[in-house]
Design a protein around this nucleic acid. Structure first.
Length: 59
DNA sequence: ATAATTTG
DNA sequence: CAAATTAT
């Protein structure tokens, strides 16, 4: 799945928005826990950006 | 090919 | 610095 649920993220414009990530994946160095990431598009600017998503987000 | 993302 | 991803 690409995504399912909205995530609260700080957009590049500096506003808090609930967006559905286009892609999600785990970003973790070997042996470490790392974080989950999401690829979003800012509805304001149309710019793509990457943000951490909650650990419990279904990826 | 690279920036940008998170965090220990 | 490492890791995965992909729009630029």
């Amino acid at each position: 799945m690409t995504s399912s649920k909205k995530v609260k993220v700080r957009t590049p414009a500096g506003k808090e928005a609930e967006l559905i990530p286009e892609k999600t994946w785990t970003l973790a160095p070997r042996g470490r826990k790392g974080v989950k990431m999401g690829l979003f598009k800012d509805p304001e600017s149309g710019r793509y950006f990457r943000r951490k998503i909650p650990d419990d987000y279904p990826v």
